[in-house]
Each structure stands twice: as C-alpha cells, then as structure tokens.
Simulated scan of single mutants.
Amino acid sequence: MGELFSGPGGIALGAHAAAAATGVDLRHAWANDYDASAVETYRANIPGATAQSVIHGDVRDLDVESLPKIDGFAFGFPCNDYSMIGESKGLDGNFGPLYKYGVNVLDAHRPNWFVAENVSGLQTANAGLAFPRILEELRHAGPGYELTPHLYKFEEYGVPQRRHRIIIVGLSRENGARFAVPAPTHKDPTTWKSVRNALGGLVQSAPNNERTRQSKVVEERLAYINPGQNAFNAALPDHLKLNVKGATFSQIYRRLHPDLPSYTITGSGGGGTHGYHWEEVRALTNRERARIQTFPDTFVFKGSKEQVRKQVGMAVPPDGAEVIFSALFRTLRGEDYDSVPMNLTQMGAPSRP
C-alpha cells in the first residue's frame, strides 16, 4: 500500500490491523506527508515504515511515477478548504485542488483499490459542485474504478467520538467486484462508547500525556460549565463571558460529557478549542485526545505538544479505518459481511430512501 497525506498513520494503523484480522498480507510500500513531525511519528509506529519509504515533502514536488508500484492506495486529501469551519474555499483554495495528486497516483500506478477520506463539508463545497467533480475524476482515473462514497458516523462503529467523515472506496473495474458499506456495529446510541470508557485506566506516565497549565481565569470559567455545556450556554458571570460577537461555535470551552462520545477532536484552534475534561478544570492531554481517536497508548507521537495535537486532530481514527479496510479485504476475497446501502450517490448528493 502507498499513501499520500499520510499524517501520523491513522489510516495505515487501521489498515494493518484489518489485514492481521483477515489474514491479508499487507505491506507498507511508501508514504508522503508535508508535516515533518507527522512523518517521524509514522516512521516510528507503522510496520515496515523506514526513513527512506516515508517521504517528507510537499506532494507537489513528489515524482509519483518513480515510486515503487503498489496494489492499494490510501489518501486523506487535505480538508482545510472543505471544512464548514472557516472560509470553505473548496477547489478555489490552496489545499482544495490537492486531491488531484491522488488522481495522479491512480493514473501512474493503477492500483487494484483505493480509499480516500475527507470531511463531510466536501458535499457542499463550491455550491455542491466540488464533490461530483472529484468523484468523476476518481471514477475515470487509471483503469477506471467502481466507487462507493459514504458518510460514516464513526460513533456508530465503536469510536468514542462523534466524528463524521466521507470515505470513498474505489475498486478497479478489472476486479469485477463492488465494495459494500459495512453495517454499523453500534447503531443504537445506547451502545455508543463513552469518553469515560475511553479514558479509563490512563496513567499519568503514559506517553504524550503532558498537561497544559490553565490560567486562573480559564479554571474559574470551566468551573461554571457543566459536562456537555460550552461557554455560550453555561450560566457564566459577566466577568467570565466571552465578549466575541457571533462566536457561538459550540466547542469553545465545551466540556465533555462522561457518558457520551466526545465531540469531534480538532487539530488546531486557539483558546477554548482544546477539548475539556468533564470533572477536572483543564484541557485534555494529547494522550487523552489520542485515546478518543482510538490510538493505543503504545503509539508514541513525535514532536512538540502543539505538533502532536495537530497530528492527533487531523488523523483518521484507526478503529474506524480498521472497520472499512476489513470490509474491503473481505470484498476482495469474495466473502460476505453485513452491509448497508451507501448514503451518498455517485454524484455526491445524499441518496434518497
């Protein structure tokens, strides 16, 4: 498997776990990312990864045709311009067009399968025109691919976090197979994994578990915010209210609810966006964020505290990736599994019942 925009390795970790569980011989071929600390993390944690095979650099400078041939390909192309938070420039932004480098890999290497990932905001970018265009280019890349785009709600697959992402699985038309969306394993909200469960048993000495020192004002503000509340719906005294017009983003100083999945863990943002413990008046540590993202404690992130926060927040949850890759590998072996209809049409719009 080759990978672009590999980040710290959430997709790869999930893919290797799925391969081990299904008896597939999955081997790392190469990966690329522009973030130096993420590259170091990937090299340190992903089976088969080396200093030579995990390439640090801008994808626009990468000679994809010279890379070793691959059977499968994964790419979580940059979501910055497709996120519903921010300017949402889509294809007109600096990052939006970078999916084309994934298309270039498909043209050059013609892998049997690929898995692409992006945020749910991809559906509405450029007035709804970006997603169909991307699907069309992926469909006709390389040997031609049968696509199965789906908006996955990872809390329905055992991830202790409400994280919704579009995953596009493509199978070469030469395979004659079609991927089916794996059925949710935790469809009933009463079965969702909670953050209390996710963070249980964490010891202070765990790697990447350094705490952020909170100011007295932040500690006082958090003390007034109940689990599940944020700085705008809690009963804060006037001197602790945030005097920012229109800034009602629901995650600002939002404390986790211990008996529910976390809200979406993010990789960037200023004060109030770090995720906050339900009981202690503090921000989450990077290890706590990593657990919510389903990285095991043995997965050690490289870089500064802020660099690690970015890596964790931008990653695909390995447990979510494992579910999708397990279904993919079973599809390639001709095995049946529980599935559901895809909820996005081939043109990118939500499918109708």
Rank of each mutant, 00 (worst) to 15 (best):
N175W: 07
R178W: 03
P261V: 03
I167T: 13
R213G: 08
N197D: 14
S172M: 07
R213S: 12
R211L: 14
A234E: 08
S215A: 06
R165D: 04
D238K: 15
G267T: 05
A180S: 11
N230D: 15
E156Q: 15
V217L: 11
Q251N: 11
K153F: 15
A283F: 06
R165Y: 09
A223D: 15
A234D: 11
D188H: 03
T190R: 14
N233G: 10
V203N: 07
P261F: 00
P227C: 08
L242G: 04
L171R: 06
R254M: 11
I225W: 02
L222Y: 05
P182A: 05
L236P: 09
G267Q: 07
E220H: 13
V217R: 14
Q204G: 01
Y276L: 06
Y263N: 08
E279W: 01
G275Y: 03
E155Q: 15
G201C: 04
F154W: 15
T248R: 14
A290M: 03
D238Q: 10
Y276W: 06
R291S: 07
T266S: 07
E174Q: 11
G158I: 08
R221P: 00
N226K: 15
A177L: 13
L260C: 09
L236Y: 10
T294S: 11
G246P: 13
S250N: 13
W192F: 14
R289M: 13
G270V: 02
R178V: 10
R213T: 12
A183N: 01
Q251A: 11
G271I: 00
Y253V: 00
G228F: 09
T185F: 11
V281W: 08
N226P: 01
S194C: 01
F179H: 06
A177W: 03
G228N: 09
N226F: 05
Y263A: 06
R162G: 03
G158Q: 08
T185N: 02
F179M: 09
L284N: 12
L151W: 05
R221Y: 00
V217D: 10
G176S: 08
T266M: 12
L222Q: 10
P258K: 09
Q161K: 06
E155R: 12
H277E: 11
R211S: 15
K187M: 10
Y253W: 12
R291T: 08
H277V: 02
I252S: 01
H257Y: 00
P160E: 06
R213M: 13
L202T: 09
G270D: 09
V181R: 08
V159M: 08
V244S: 03
K153E: 12
P184I: 06
V244T: 13
E156V: 00
Y224N: 06
H150S: 04
P149Q: 03
T148A: 13
V281Q: 12
T273G: 03
I166S: 01
E155M: 09
